[in-house]
């Protein structure tokens, strides 16, 4: 049997398949349900300083084959309520707690509450607008100076490992990765959704309640792979410190996982695939990955990691 185990800061998992943030994981019952599946780890819904309501629907649709569009509006129970979940519940799988805030103080407030409650590591969702006047149309993750400010503030406030989750909606993702890592992040997670819009020509308006939306699902996988490759290559060149990458975007099969690992990822996250097969996807993908590794003589993930980068090195 191939060894699928993953050991990275704050996370010790039996396989590299984690639930992606925002998919089902905002309450204890839903997290237990995912934990009892074949997933190796959990990521919570992004938790903010105060409870937030859902945007008006439709909030999430399969717009066409392989294309998922969503604008949920970061609905979440708020830091105090979720701290009770972190403190009181024993999940069968390790959990990365995803957090967000309107500014550095907001992130710090949530980070401290989660760390106090016993969270073993944090993922900073940087794909949300900054509360600062004048930066409304841009998300924090598109502004390296704000990434640095947020990550540094959280780094100073808590001791647990932090993963910075990057947006793909930037010019050169290595710049944002550098900002996060130089400010003290222990790892990276990418990609968040690709900004999108879809119009219904009959109704003459966007089909998502919030109008603007983010795109995920199999259609974005090649984009995500490119972003992961760019960061991995920068690590090889020594432009970025060598830290674990949690990769995601459109993963549906064991082979998709192998693709990301071969581009340098340490583990992966899976979100949109649950639309089609719910939590059963995890066991299916784990089995596929395991038999693929056996067929090809890979004993563990380390023996596959980054091998596709060899062919790309000359490009840098």
């Amino acid at each position: 049997m191939a060894d699928l185990g993953v050991e990275i800061p704050g996370l010790s998992m039996a396989n590299p398949l984690m639930l992606a943030s925002g998919i089902q994981g905002g309450n204890a019952a839903a997290l237990h349900r995912v934990a009892s599946s074949g997933a190796g780890g959990l990521v919570s819904k992004s938790i903010g300083p105060v409870p937030r309501e859902m945007y008006p629907g439709p909030v999430c649709v399969e717009a066409m084959d392989s294309v998922i569009l969503n604008a949920m509006g970061l609905p979440n129970p708020g830091a105090d309520k979720f701290a009770e979940v972190v403190r009181g519940e024993e999940f069968a799988k390790p959990m990365l707690v995803s957090i967000f805030g309107g500014d550095a103080e907001g992130y710090v407030e949530v980070a401290e509450k989660m760390a106090d409650a016993g969270a073993s590591c944090l993922e900073l969702n940087l794909s949300c607008p900054h509360a600062k006047p004048g930066s409304r149309s841009l998300i924090i993750g598109q502004q390296p100076e704000l990434i640095r400010e947020v990550v540094a503030a959280v780094r100073a406030a808590v001791d647990i490992p932090i993963y910075a989750k990057l947006s793909p909606n930037t010019t050169n993702i290595v710049v944002e990765a550098e900002a996060a890592l130089s400010a003290g992040a222990d790892g990276l997670a990418l990609i968040n959704t690709v900004s999108a819009i879809e119009v219904d020509p009959f109704a003459g308006r966007p089909i998502i309640g919030n109008l603007l939306c983010g795109m995920s699902g199999p259609a974005i996988r090649p984009i995500a792979q490119r972003k992961v490759a760019e960061i991995s290559l920068a690590m090889l060149r020594g432009e970025l410190p060598n830290v674990p990458i949690l990769a995601m975007g459109g993963i549906m099969t064991g082979l998709d996982v192998a693709r990301f690992i071969m581009l340098g990822a340490s583990a992966v996250q899976i979100g949109s695939a649950l639309i089609w097969d719910d939590v059963d996807v995890f066991q299916g993908i784990a089995d596929e990955l395991s038999s693929f590794m056996e067929q090809n003589g890979y004993d563990d993930l380390a023996s596959m990691r980054g091998i596709a980068l060899d062919s790309l090195e000359g490009l840098s």
Partner: peptide, 20 residues
């Protein structure tokens, strides 16, 4: 049922999602 497609996790009854 906010999303109806097993994404939001806000329709739990016991250990089941009402939407699916």
């Amino acid at each position: 049922l906010p999303c109806s497609v097993a994404m939001c996790g806000l329709c739990m009854v016991g250990d089941r999602l009402t939407c699916v």
